[in-house]
């Protein structure tokens, strides 16, 4: 039996906009175990972004329980949440969110700055290793402006890996990329998943979701469909099938 990484039970989230109360999440039950590759899907307003914010410990639920790696996150305060984010979570954003005019290596080092247990030497070594793992060994001292979109996203993925998180949360991580680069990034995610990383991937593209192992569909604050991906695709095969680019 695989270890449970994320367990959500009866999770509710309400927002107060003026006098109106918006029920963004209306009682979500969800379990994600180690080694899973989950796609969270849904149209805008379905609650998937709110779900991701709560899973990412950036926001606190109004009610219900959320166990992350055995810790009940719902009861933690702001600073404890920051620590959880630092040690347990890796984020990959649609817009990469790298620091400008800062080398790839320094960008990847960033989460380790907030981890007091990591010393300078170890920080550098781990950042190097993470960049090598995403295939950017030769680009360590390039700034984001000197990197392509796909390479920038790889730096961001290396950054999410560097603290060895229990789960990587990717928010539309291929949204800003062309088809080929998207597949390349997805290939990287599939490889990391094969190595045992748990990945939660928010997307609204059904063909990207087919590259994962399980899809969870949100609508109006409810999970309306949860199913294993039966006709799973492999990014490496998709790339091979793409027409050869003429440079």
């Amino acid at each position: 039996m695989d270890k449970t990484i994320i367990q959500v039970a009866g999770l509710r989230k309400e927002f107060h906009v003026g006098d109106v109360t918006v029920h963004a999440l209306k009682g979500i039950d969800l379990t994600i175990t180690q080694g899973e590759f989950v796609a969270i899907m849904g149209t805008s307003g379905s609650g998937k972004s709110t779900m991701l914010n709560i899973l990412g410990c950036l926001d606190k639920p109004t009610g219900g329980d959320y166990f992350l790696d055995g810790i009940n996150v719902a009861g933690l305060d702001k600073n404890q949440l920051a620590e959880v984010r630092n040690l347990k979570l890796g984020f990959v954003f649609q817009a990469y969110n790298l620091l400008p005019r800062t080398s790839a290596l320094e960008n990847v080092e960033l989460p380790l700055f907030y981890n007091p247990r990591v010393k300078t030497r170890e920080r550098r070594d781990r950042a190097r290793a993470a960049l090598e793992a995403v295939g950017l060994a030769g680009r360590m001292h390039h700034t984001p402006a000197q990197l392509s979109g796909g390479q920038q996203q790889r730096v961001a993925i290396a950054r999410s890996l560097v603290n060895d998180p229990v789960v990587i949360l990717a928010d539309e991580a291929t949204g800003n990329l062309d088809t080929r680069t998207s597949y390349e990034i997805m290939e990287l995610f599939q490889r990391l998943n094969d190595q045992g990383k748990t990945i939660v991937f928010v997307t609204h593209e059904p063909d990207i979701a087919r590259l994962t192992k399980r899809s969870i569909v949100f609508r109006d604050g409810h999970v309306i469909k949860q199913q294993a991906v039966t006709d799973r695709l492999y990014a490496s095969e998709l790339i091979a099938a793409l027409p050869v680019e003429n440079d």
Partner: peptide, 13 residues
Amino acid sequence: REIGLRMAIGGKS
């Protein structure tokens, strides 16, 4: 955005 990122990756207030 940098501040948001720093907070997301574990920076406290």
